[in-house]
Design a protein around this nucleic acid. Structure first.
Length: 269
DNA sequence: ATGGTAGCACGGCTA
């Protein structure tokens, strides 16, 4: 079973690029982020005409996530638990049953967190975007704890908006004060990973030079000035099934591309 | 230091 994550930066603008990637890569399951569309205005035919089932959690203008799957999507839930007042569409879950067992798929679009606003004592300012990012990560940690306690195969994948290590950025020093790389962000990410999750990409590929995002600005793609912020994290029961992983970087060179590219993993499931 | 690009939707926010 091939699973993948792809921040498409607008489903309406990405009809061509998404269709080409689906036809080439043939994922069995994919989570999408930044669909920037409501459930009602999502162009479902683009997905369903290719034989995929589709579940969306949309929002007008911003954010929005979706899961598509060749197999049925069961027990779908929308929204990350822990804050009923949070209206941003950044989380969707569903279960996919393969020939040899089930996988809980959790698709996420973690808040960017910029601009970083701090109080004079250096703590994140309440009500600011950075505080929202860290609070969202605390809720994510709670959800992952529950997934770990269930002792089942699960994948928590999406745009984490986190550069885990310096080797995951072409120019790490340019990101030191950014919400994607600041110590509080990376510490919160490690707390989650250290619950026992496996980074599917790093389980099989070491070293620098592997990125999943290149900014539209400053000729970032042409200069390979990228960062690795889209991740597939696996519970132990899912990590035991991992046979391959990769990043479809060539998608960034296509016509009218997203600023992110797909990240994928193959599970023996 | 600022502004560089893109999407949604048509004004300004988000990234």
């Amino acid at each position: 079973m091939k699973i993948a994550t792809f921040n498409i930066n607008g489903i309406k603008a990405r009809a061509g690029a998404l269709a080409r990637w689906l036809d080439d890569a043939q994922p069995d399951v994919a989570v999408l982020q930044e669909i920037k569309s409501t459930d009602e205005t999502f162009p479902r035919d683009l997905i369903e005409d290719r034989g995929y089932n589709l579940e969306t959690h949309g929002q007008k203008g911003f954010n929005g996530v979706a899961i598509l799957s060749r197999l049925p999507l069961e027990d779908v839930t929308r929204g990350l638990p822990g804050d009923d007042a949070d209206t941003q569409a950044r989380w969707i879950e569903a279960t996919v049953s393969g020939a040899r067992g089930a996988l809980r798929v959790c698709g996420l679009y973690l808040p960017n967190g910029n601009p970083v606003e701090l109080t004079p004592d250096g703590t994140p300012a309440a009500g600011g975007k950075y505080a929202y990012k860290l609070a969202w990560m605390a809720r994510l940690e709670a959800r992952v704890k529950a997934l770990m306690a269930a002792e089942e195969a699960a994948a928590v994948l999406g745009d984490y908006n986190i550069i885990p290590q310096a080797e995951d950025a072409a120019k790490p020093d340019a990101w030191r004060d950014d919400a994607l790389f600041r110590p509080e962000s990376r510490t919160a990410f490690r707390r989650i990973v250290n619950l026992g999750l496996t980074d599917a990409f790093r389980a099989r590929t070491r070293g620098p030079g592997h990125y999943s995002f290149w900014d539209y600005q400053g000729r970032a793609w042409e200069n390979n000035n990228g960062i690795r912020i889209d991740h597939i994290l696996l519970t132990p029961q899912a990590a035991d099934l991992l046979t391959a992983s990769g990043i479809d970087a060539e998608v960034r060179a296509g016509e009218k591309p997203s600023d992110h590219v797909p990240v994928w993993a193959e599970l023996d499931l």
